[in-house]
Design a protein around this nucleic acid. Sequence first.
DNA 1: CAGTTTGTTTTGCT
DNA 2: CAGCAAAACAAACT
Length: 269
Amino acid sequence: MAFSAAEAAMPEGPSIVILKEAARQFEGRTIAAASGNSGGIDFAALPGQPLLAVRSWGKHLLLELPLFSLRIHLLMFGSYRINERKPDAVPRLALRFAEGGELNFYTCSVRQIAEALDTVYDWRVDVMADAWEPRLALRQLRAKPQMLACDALLDQNIFSGVGNIIKNEVLFRLRIHPLSKVKDIPATKLRELVKQARQYSFEFKQWKQASVLKQHWLAHTRRICPRCRIPLQKAHLGLTRRRSFWCERCQKRYDSAARPASVANERKQ
DNA sequence: CAGTTTGTTTTGCT
DNA sequence: CAGCAAAACAAACT
């Protein structure tokens, strides 16, 4: 049976999985009317096409149709309404179905994908996918030894679906300093990083669905370290310059260049 | 009320 | 041309 859903923005991978599950009520239904202010979309071709499948890859929501697919990316501020409309907002994409129901997307990027989705997307890098391959993520990390931990987690080709919140929480949970280089992180720790990228994403989803996500944040937007009670650091780190929250005391900065003070002093002479 | 940002693509500079 | 920085998008929150 149909149900409505409204969503404020929090568009990391888990939120897109929640959206996918909600949008699946329309699978098998036929588009009756389509409109929106997105450029590059052949709206006239949409009516009459059945929605074959609703899929997702990281932060992408994918609507698979017989002639092409639609890719919706909520970016930072995107939102949607299912079986209802956002008052005073113009949808980027609005779909009405012949059997009833409607799907509306706002302030997002909508693109048409001509190729088969299985040729466009590598499902193995989506941290929430059944096809997720942690070993592939490890291999890709080892290929980028100089990359910082805070940048690595945000790399959508390695950890598709991980966003800034998940980044901060995973690093805090594992006690890894965001400025640690991949090559300096011990193998065991690196494997944990890969494992937690997925693990935390599923917890994020559960918490979000229970409307208790924010209260579970330990580092993101927090001022005090919940473990050692000292003030958390806050800065825009890495190539991505995204906001990082971390504890200088309990997150270890793995650094092969660092040496004990005694050694450093000897070399000075 | 001004400032900030859960993300990505595009533009433009050095 | 590579590499990087800034802009653009625009809404909800502090």
